[in-house]
Nucleic acid binder design. Structure first.
Length: 642
DNA sequence: TGCGGAAGCT
DNA sequence: AGCTTCCGCA
């Protein structure tokens, strides 16, 4: 049953830490785990089990031994290893599957998806162990948060572009095995990996292309554009054999197949089969079809298609947000026909800005000679700043005001935000905003939940979810009311269940940014990068630049308004939680714990995560709107120059 | 078994 | 940052 891909379902090499990645000196435990999981040889020791990212350590001692060998820590044992795994809880890379011994579950949403939005971890459910179990119903994958910080905040590696290449190289070098012990394991693993990678991997495409360390954001861009160092437009052999490709081919080839839905988050929301609309062709088909790969071309197409589809369906731009590179050909509402959809060789769309821009092979450095500035985002300010300053006030009193508020009065907000920014609240650097945005974005996962059960997530998530629960309910409420706005999104009754399993919680946030016009959408988020100084990312100028934006904005705003209301509350909640240590303390144990975690994460992250934590995953609609906003905001940023 | 704090190492 | 080590608690 294995996936065609390779022996086992492979996890993307990227999963392994690249040397280049900033903080990664060595392989990380989760990478190692994935490595083991992908190797059949180790299935007796550790294997996928259950669903969606869930794995069981069949032989804890052995796993510990292997890990110890890899790390040259002979003293390693399961107790220690498990501590390390627990350490991932906070990061949300993993969580424990309650009730099952030695069973943990990856939070692919955050992990993988973050990095590889396109990837669908789950491939089929019953998939053999080689592949991670797929979520039941759905496949949708989620969009990666634009802000990296959230999930992996601590582990930047994931995002770091370097990841792609690194693994391969490493393998080649054989660098991995360092220990004198040189346990066979090491060599084995590496060997296998190396082989795989070399063969083909979509990642490879990226390899070299990526600059040594791009900020996560840039990553996304990279997707869109990085691929060819040389000339972008390579007609490209988009199809890669991708033996290793992280994306398992979906076992279900059918039209309804996983891939399509899976791949595009937006899509998942919308047009899937059941929808009346015809999904944009591009999406559904070819690209994703059987062989979607990271190939740049594919990516482009995918993105475009996605974009369009989103656009077409009036979906939230979220998709766009993530992929700055992509430009929608026509901001106007594209009719179905859209050219963009072409998968293979669509007409050269504007997408390429970024692509083309990435001139050199990735590694080079200067990333942006391009016209668009591709600035990398500066790391988010530390929470400290916030805290020290207004943060308290803001959070306490008006969490809503700052960001969430945007939803409420989208239109107005826009102005305020853009132009003035919330007076009382210090404007946080864009980065913050971004993070928030991201949080919201994430959420596609909710759908997943609906589809499949929360169970998967494991208890941990639940706990977290529970906290947010009421929020969600509220949200749902709103949705019910507001849904009308977006036809396409079927909001499922997301009701009771918590939302998302893991990740979402933090991942997506609502962006404070005002929605800009479609044009904005088209643009990449590029602008995002915030400069530390910028209080208002969206400079008024940006807005001014494009009247269209305004138009869209309004249009969106209407929709958003409907939805928006609830968010504030949620936002506040989370915020409080995240920020207030004080509050946390008062809370019950569980809550306290979690809150603490969150905080830690945020703090560590340097604030990137901060906002993100707060919002619970918003209902799809909202998210969409938020995304839009975000997109717009970004746009505006970019355009600011205008 | 599992959790998580604390300290320490790299 | 990402563990590793140790430990008390449940």
């Amino acid at each position: 049953m294995k996936t065609p891909a390779d022996t086992g379902f492979a996890f993307p090499e990227w999963a392994y830490k690249p040397e280049s990645s900033p903080g990664s000196r060595q392989i990380q435990l989760w990478h190692f785990i994935l490595e083991l999981l992908r190797k059949e040889e180790y299935h007796d020791v550790i294997a996928w089990q259950g669903d969606y990212g869930e794995f069981v350590i069949k032989d804890p001692d052995e796993v510990a031994r292997l890990w110890g060998a890899r790390k040259c820590k002979p003293q390693m044992n399961y107790d220690k290893l498990s501590r390390a795994l627990r350490y991932y809880y906070n990061k949300r890379i993993l969580h424990k599957t309650k009730g099952k011994r030695f069973t943990y579950k990856f939070n692919f949403n955050k992990l993988v998806l973050v990095n590889y939005p396109f990837i669908d971890m789950g491939s089929g459910r019953g998939v053999p162990q080689s592949a991670p179990p797929v979520p039941t119903g759905g496949t949708h994958f989620r969009f990666p948060p634009s802000t990296p910080s959230e999930v992996l905040s601590s582990s930047e590696e994931l995002r770091s572009p370097g990841m792609f290449s690194s693994v391969a190289r490493r393998m080649a070098r054989g660098s991995v095995s360092d220990c004198s012990d040189g346990t066979s394991t090491n060599s084995e693993l590496e060997e296998g990996v190396g082989a795989d990678e070399r063969g083909v991997g979509p990642e490879r495409a990226f390899r070299g292309l990526l600059p040594p360390r791009l900020p996560h954001e840039s990553l996304f861009r990279v997707y869109g554009g990085a691929p060819n160092p040389a000339g972008l437009p390579r007609p490209a052999p988009r199809v890669h054999p991708e033996p290793l490709s992280p994306f398992p081919v979906s076992p279900l080839p059918g039209p309804g197949g996983l891939l399509a839905p899976t791949l595009s988050p937006a899509l998942s929301m919308t047009p899937t089969p059941h929808l009346p609309y015809t999904p944009s062709p591009s999406l559904s088909s070819p690209m994703m079809g059987s062989h979607f790969s990271f190939n740049p071309e594919d990516m482009k197409h995918y993105l475009q298609a996605h974009t369009q589809s989103v656009y077409n369906y009036h979906l939230s731009p979220r998709a766009f947000l993530h992929y700055p590179n992509i430009v929608i050909p026509q901001p106007h509402r594209p009719t179905l026909e859209k050219p963009a959809t072409h998968h293979l060789h669509g007409p050269p769309l504007p997408l390429s800005h970024s692509l083309s821009q990435h001139p050199g092979g990735g590694e080079d450095g200067p990333q942006h000679p391009s016209p668009f500035k591709f600035k990398l985002q500066p790391p988010p300010l530390g929470r400290k700043q916030r805290d020290s300053g207004s943060s308290l006030a803001a959070s306490a009193s008006s969490s809503s005001s700052s960001q969430s508020s945007s939803f409420t009065g989208s239109g107005q907000i826009t102005n305020s935000v853009l132009a003035a920014g919330p007076p009382k609240i210090k404007v946080e650097p864009i980065s913050d905003i971004e993070s928030e945005e991201e949080v919201e974005v994430t959420d596609i996962s909710e759908e997943d939940e609906l589809n499949h059960n929360d169970e998967d997530d494991g208890g941990d998530i639940f706990a977290s979810t529970a906290r947010r629960h009421h929020h969600h309910q509220l949200n749902n409420h709103h949705q019910a009311n507001g849904n009308g706005s977006s036809p396409s999104t079927p909001l499922p009754p997301h009701s009771n269940h918590d939302d998302d399993p893991d990740d979402d919680e933090e991942v997506f946030k609502t962006p404070a940014t005002p929605p800009i016009g479609s044009a904005a959408l088209a643009f990449p988020l590029i602008g995002l990068k915030s400069e530390p100084g910028l209080a208002t990312p969206i400079s008024p100028g940006g807005t001014r630049c494009i009247p269209l934006k305004l138009r869209f904005k309004r249009r969106w705003s209407e929709d958003q308004k409907m939805e928006a209301d609830g968010e504030r509350d949620e936002a506040e909640d989370k915020k409080v939680r995240a920020e207030g240590e004080e509050d946390v303390e008062s809370k019950p144990e569980e809550a306290r714990r979690r809150g603490g975690e969150v905080e830690n994460g945020g703090g560590r992250a340097g604030g990137g995560v901060i906002l993100g934590l707060m919002l619970p995953p918003p209902p799809t609609q909202r998210r969409a709107s938020s995304e839009l906003q975000r997109a717009t905001a970004q746009l505006s940023l970019e355009n600011t120059g205008c």
